[in-house]
Design a protein around this nucleic acid. Sequence first.
DNA 1: TTGTACGCGTTATCAA
DNA 2: TTGATAACGCGTACAA
Lengths: 313, 313
Amino acid sequence: MTNIRDIARISGFSVSTVSRVLNHKNYVSTPVRTKIQAVIDKLDYVPNDVARDLSRGKTMTIGAVMLNIDHPYYTDLSAGIMTAAFAAGYNVMQLPSNYDNDQERGYMEQLRRKAYDALIFTTHNIPIEEMLTYRRYGRIVVCHDPGDIDIDAAYSERGPSYEQAFTWIKRHDYRRIGLLLPRDPALSATGAETVHAYTKVFGEKPNGSLTRLGTMTYADGYSAAEYYVSNNLNPDFIFANGDDIATGVAQYYKDRGLPAPGLMGQDKQLSGQLLGFPTIDHHYRDVGAAALRLATGAASGQVGIHSDFISRR
Amino acid sequence: MTNIRDIARISGFSVSTVSRVLNHKNYVSTPVRTKIQAVIDKLDYVPNDVARDLSRGKTMTIGAVMLNIDHPYYTDLSAGIMTAAFAAGYNVMQLPSNYDNDQERGYMEQLRRKAYDALIFTTHNIPIEEMLTYRRYGRIVVCHDPGDIDIDAAYSERGPSYEQAFTWIKRHDYRRIGLLLPRDPALSATGAETVHAYTKVFGEKPNGSLTRLGTMTYADGYSAAEYYVSNNLNPDFIFANGDDIATGVAQYYKDRGLPAPGLMGQDKQLSGQLLGFPTIDHHYRDVGAAALRLATGAASGQVGIHSDFISRR
DNA sequence: TTGTACGCGTTATCAA
DNA sequence: TTGATAACGCGTACAA
């Protein structure tokens, strides 16, 4: 493995001059540059990136903690992060979470060990307070609304589009609204925002018996519909936390030959387009891009990205 | 930034002993270990990963070159790579291709500069011959059948399931078969395998006028159907290179109020399940996992993963 | 404009 | 069982 010292020795100049040639900066006379470059070319030499990182004290790498599941939140967010990272000259290390808090803590330890310049948490497991103690080792960005806590954050601001959505539902005279939420509203901002917007629009809290938690997939939507039907709950509208999930609902009714209630999804997926029900585009790509800019230090603070209600009319 | 020398100095032992404590190996007496560990804990010291990588001459990082698009080939492949990497203690750097060969070459240069221990190409742009010249810098794995070329490869072996698929189509008495292919069969193995299986089963080459190239999305399927209809080509069956694409086909016929031809997709997507047509599962997760094992050196050679025809009956 | 020498932080070899 | 020191390669004050 030929190194910079070899080039210096063979070309007859010093390592610093060689370094200057490599990095195209400072003063190197043309003849010297030519000679050194000739040796570099001849020996087919390239500098070692790891040594460079060590010397510079910077890796130009951002770690992105995420679940490895095929869901628009992750795929779009990831795409946004990658695109922005490439544009900014950064590399992205995908760090799988597997729903394991200790694993995510391990990534903060890696940040501390200088493996990354910054960390983006697209998951929402580790308490922010715990993250704050690691901020001295590098930037940490979360992808949900951190409330009053002072940490860099990029997230989808769902409130306004949720209000539009529920207003649309109300205007169409639906009243028994089934809500499918990803997690308990007490624990999840998304769920809380949904409930808040519902309450604001309808003037009352959502019907508890019509609210289902933990729906993430098509199959979950299918089960939720089964639940509604077998318990004679008869919602006249179902607001799901995803088009695929809403599609699962529709399929159950179809399979049973029952008239389906009104449906609305989220995330602007193909399935929603096919079935033609309204949806909400949360612009996760933009969220990801914003998160990356926070991670590199190109921006700071809290960046809320507005989502759009799409009535599909 | 406290380093190993600080710990050595303050604890009163040498850096090598401290290193041994850190790495839990070789002989360190219990009292010495305890003392050194106390200093480590007190100063809240952790070793620097970059320095470690430099010293060891290894990064435990695999670069994965891929397109950043929401397609099961990439999402499943990526998931397989990530899962296997985590299990093997490797990190994965996502390297976006953007359809740009020079960019992909850049990643081979990074391999040469020791940024990664190995590279996985999930794309199929750079000629393998060119890759061979970089193999002296680290393992390079491709995700398609490399034919006679001796390079590590993990890929989906589509031939047998394609034959099953066409046999199924033939048995159902379809004869005017429209083929939707991702790329020109002359350039793409997938396309070539499709044509080969078709020819073997039907005893003749596919009808050129019924073959459409470059279909990648739902919208492409929609346009293909439009093409068939507006040119009065009347295929009685359409074999698409993806369930979403086949769904686009179906939607066009539906929108026009026309009877749809028979349909078959690939990749076992939700859309195909909804519409109930047959599909082929290429097991891209397994392909990704195999690719990673090749990249780490846990395996070598060419690994073909068999795909499964799913009739959905 | 060029060179010297040290710092970056760790691992590994070999001697003691 | 412990220690001294040489790698690992590169960047960069500072001197010349």
